[in-house]
């Protein structure tokens, strides 16, 4: 038990004394997850929108598949991505293994279903009077699409924050694809795994607290934006 208190204490020591290894893991985590989220949003938002806004054959089945992918274990995604980008895999020449770019690819796969599914639910939960109102006010179909997206901005923000949470907290992809290489692909979660494996439980707790602080900052920023809007 005492390693919990010790963990709390060392979390703040690490942060305030500027422990280089810890900060490197933090920056790697932020860099990788932020890019993964950015790309996931660019791809996932329009798809999520299309999935709820338009009617087409097989829509329900696609939705079921997307919702199922929400439960995809991170290790499986790690394995899948590894199978493709290992030197003997079909994408081996891209040199993505043991690179942050490889982790980004894996996290995109992990997080896109979250973005698509939550965006789709967000748009589905919009008021049905919205579309009539926009038509009545003379909006063109394209304008209706953009305005609908804007009306669902809070749902989209929640989707982004949830997806970010999944990205920064995953360990399967970072470990399998990144390889937990010090100064390069070591993220907060792979560092936690390593420290725990070494028996440095307090250090593991400390890094966990750092991760929580980042999540808290993201959610706090979200609340701030909502208040302003």
């Amino acid at each position: 038990m005492e390693f919990l208190a010790e963990g709390f204490f060392s979390a703040f020591t690490l942060l305030f004394q500027g422990h280089a290894e810890t900060y490197d893991a933090i920056f790697t985590t932020l860099e990788v997850s932020s890019f993964a989220i950015l790309i996931s949003l660019i791809i996932g938002l329009p798809l999520g929108f299309a999935l709820s806004y338009y009617n087409f054959p097989g829509k329900r089945h696609i939705r079921a598949v997307v919702d199922t992918l929400l439960a995809l274990p991170t290790v499986i995604v790690g394995l899948l991505v590894y199978a493709f980008i290992t030197k003997k895999g079909p994408l081996g020449d891209l040199n993505l293994l043991f690179q942050t770019s490889g982790i980004i690819v894996g996290q995109i796969i992990l997080v896109i279903p979250v973005v698509i599914s939550l965006t789709a639910s967000g748009i589905e939960s919009l008021d049905e009077r919205l579309k009539s109102t926009l038509i009545t006010l003379g909006a063109s179909p394209r304008r209706i699409l953009l305005s609908t997206l804007y009306e669902s901005r809070f749902a989209v923000m929640t989707a982004a924050a949830t997806a970010y949470g999944r990205a920064i907290s995953e360990v399967g992809v970072s470990m399998m694809v990144g390889g937990n290489i010090k100064w390069h692909t070591r993220t907060i979660t792979t560092a936690i795994t390593l420290e725990t494996g070494k028996g440095e439980f307090a250090m593991g707790i400390a890094l966990g607290i750092v991760l929580l602080l980042i999540s808290f900052a993201v959610n706090w920023a979200l609340i701030f934006f909502r208040k302003r809007a």
Binding site: D127, R129, L130, S132, T133, T136, L137, G138, S147, E151, R153, A229
Partner: peptide, 11 residues
């Protein structure tokens, strides 16, 4: 142009 019984305002 039409106004509904319970009109919707954009957010």
């Amino acid at each position: 142009t039409m106004m509904q019984q319970d009109p919707y305002l954009l957010k």
